[in-house]
Design a binder for these strands. Structure first.
Lengths: 250, 250
DNA sequence: AGATATTTGTTCGTATGTATT
DNA sequence: TAATACATACGAACAAATATC
């Protein structure tokens, strides 16, 4: 467990961080396993405190470790949280033009597959959450604030399928798109009146999708979700022109 | 441009990093614009050198800034490179089970759309690269090493469509899947003989797709790419069972 | 090509904050 | 409460890299 510093083309802290990553892979470390503490790591890699701190900072930002203070503290292997990865990926799109039309170009392809694949895996608790989500969107909103919350709740309905999906790549992509859309919705609701007919249309689709899910009819869910996406895409264009993209983390 | 340290629930370096991100958004900073140098930032935020270095390290890992030494050096706003985001997202999937079947579940949905949407945007240079890629896969491989290179080149063929796509989200997803697949291919080629008929089948599809692209027939490209994916998916199962997922960066 | 100024990169020593026992 | 084991933060000095003259 030592690093060759003879040709330090990269920074020391980066070399050490890569070495620790390889160590995690090699030793088959799992989330919850602990790394040696700062002082021991300094000795192991022969670097100073400042360098090791930069190195640990790097791993922490990547979400690979979490650091806590106090006895039994120190760096610990972590499973990268969805939120962390979503924020990091959000940075990539900051300088790109990602309008609602392009989001929906991907979303309408993935959501039907996601929903269909999740159908066999939604347990009673998840079904109850779906029903609850529908309920919250079933009442006519009395304030703009409630309107906004309902719109977020509609996206949350879709997230529930993602969380039940057996395919982590499919799930991540759909949740990420929902995150981007939800930020657009938040901004939009500050400027535009929500059309009541859009709410009712979404509500009807969500109810149909829920019924087909309870019946475990995956193909019906796929078809309904596809129709739902086509309708959403139609009035998604209004989402843009107002909002700028922004860093996810705020 | 100052931070409230009274209730330091987060670490100072994280607070300062978030503040700098907000500053970048607020001031509409673009890639290439420069941040104040280390010394000035220390003074601006009233933190020590070590803390500011951790903060800059964080932004550098996220890909938001690049730092260089020497006169006219210092931290500079950067457009997050694809490679950086792909590595960071790769970390997310390290502890998840992402087999070839699940990769293809997404890939077969996205690649036809990607290719069709890229057709109008492929210029002569890109078409030449497509032709060149096909050529390199057209000869019977004489060594396992060449076999491996051909397989990577096949994935490169698809990347060329991604690079021409007007949809950055679609493009990122497809390239990322190709990256994950290419690592599986590398490992696989160490253990299994490549079937010659798979090479010939891929070659035939790539030629047809190329012809349809030259003819600017987006719908034909979409259909051919879909058939291509269905065939690939059929013999993709062999890819797994051997390779473990790994951190992307190595 | 070489010297120099500028800027980051690294180290050490020390002090403080925080959570566990 | 006190002792302990950690991370967190500061400051000064020195090393290394690089653009410019």
């Amino acid at each position: 467990m030592s690093v060759n510093f003879d040709v330090p083309r990269q920074k020391r802290s980066d070399l050490v961080a890569d070495e620790i990553k390889r160590w995690i892979v090699r030793e088959r470390k799992r989330p919850g396993d602990r790394l040696p503490n700062e002082r021991e790591l300094m000795a192991l890699f022969g670097v100073s405190k400042g360098t090791m701190r930069e190195c640990l900072k790097s791993l922490e930002i990547q979400g690979i470790i979490r650091i806590s203070t106090g006895p039994r503290g120190g760096p610990m292997i972590a499973e990268v949280p969805y939120q962390t990865s979503a924020e990091l990926l959000g940075n990539y799109f900051y300088f790109k033009h990602l309008d609602a039309a392009r989001l929906y170009q991907v979303r309408r392809l993935l959501e039907p597959e996601l929903a269909a694949s999740a159908v066999p895996h939604l347990d009673d608790a998840a079904l109850a959450k779906l029903a609850h989500s529908i309920e919250r969107c079933a009442v006519k909103p009395s304030t703009p604030e409630i309107q906004r919350e309902q719109r977020i709740e509609e996206l949350r309905f879709h997230d529930l399928f993602a969380e039940a999906s057996p395919n982590p790549l499919l799930a991540f992509n759909c949740k990420f798109i929902n995150d981007l859309l939800s930020r657009k919705v938040v901004f939009k609701s500050m400027y535009m009146k929500r059309q009541e007919d859009v709410r009712l249309q979404n509500l009807a689709f969500h109810r149909d999708i829920y019924e087909a899910t309870v019946a475990r009819d995956a193909e019906a869910v796929r078809r309904l979700m596809y129709e739902h996406m086509v309708e959403c895409e139609a009035h998604a264009a209004q989402l843009d022109a107002i909002v700028e993209t922004d860093f996810l983390k705020l």
